[in-house]
Amino acid sequence: MRPTGAKRETSPTMHDPRTQSTFDYSSREALEDYFNNSPGSSTEKLENFAKYVPRQNLARFLARYEIFKLIKDIQGSIVECGVLFGGGLLSFAKLSTILEPYNFQRRIIGFDTFTGFPSIDKADLKGRPERKSAHLKEHGFAAEGAYEDILKAIEIYDISRYLNHFPKVQVVKGDFAVTAKQFLKDYPHLVISCLYLDFDIYQPTKIALEQFLPRMPKGSVLVFDELNEEAFPGETIAVMEMLDLKSIRVRRFDFEPRISYAIIGD
């Protein structure tokens, strides 16, 4: 999720067996060592990013690209519920800049507490306790310094984009139960072409569907990051309370296991 963002709660010698295998973590350690010691400046390494980006993260970027193509001709902004360190948010922003450089109406809006989960609902704890994520606790997935870091990333992103006198990316910090309602008061015109649910937990996911689903026109895309995920059952429970699963077609990608989506009105 990361409706909240997240401080690393694991050291290089630890991993969450619910989401990562020992092999995965060994691979990350080897990759980090390779990145730090390979030749080239930091910018040159970024320019050759495919050498360093884990295939899982590259797959998630490709999934976002495919989602963006689905909503390219749909009016409305992209709302990401759960920003973490901002990789997904800036992916959507840069895709918009590349594929539709003159669409100044498409805003990229992210919501996150950046202090972790504000609370855990009993719905989040349903199922087998041993299968729950180690992050499923109050302040789980806290991201110290991430908010300020993302603002800096947006500042750099704005330097070279078209029509940069129009604001493009907005990050809303705080408890979503409070910030969502206030945001809609401040921006009553909001129409949403893509709602990306990555809060992981029950309460903010349900609020997002209550507040934002009525603003999604036919053809817009509703994205789930933890649907059918045993480690975070709250998202699925909230979706099932708010939507009739029999009436929507939930699609997935054959190259990315977690992300799924439904096209509104399909």
Rank of each mutant, 00 (worst) to 15 (best):
P217A: 02
D24W: 03
Q75E: 14
R161L: 08
Q20T: 12
T10Y: 15
S77D: 00
P214H: 05
N164R: 14
S77M: 04
T113M: 07
L243H: 08
M216H: 06
P233Y: 06
R106C: 00
P129W: 06
L209W: 05
D124P: 15
K185S: 03
A180C: 06
R28T: 14
G82C: 06
K206G: 00
F232K: 04
P39A: 04
L163M: 15
R60N: 07
T205D: 00
D266T: 08
F232H: 11
D198M: 08
E32T: 09
F35L: 09
L195P: 09
V83H: 01
R55P: 07
P101W: 01
S193E: 02
E130P: 09
N57L: 13
A123F: 13
Y102A: 09
K137Q: 15
S11E: 13
A143T: 00
A6K: 10
G127Q: 04
D175E: 03
R8V: 14
Y261W: 12
D121V: 02
S91H: 08
Y261R: 10
L58M: 13
C81H: 06
G5D: 04
G234L: 02
E29H: 11
K206V: 03
E100Y: 06
A208F: 03
D121N: 08
H139S: 11
Y25W: 14
L195Q: 04
R258T: 10
M14T: 11
Q211F: 08
F212R: 04
K185F: 00
E32K: 10
S27E: 10
G82F: 01
K181L: 07
V79I: 12
G88H: 00
R249Y: 11
L136E: 05
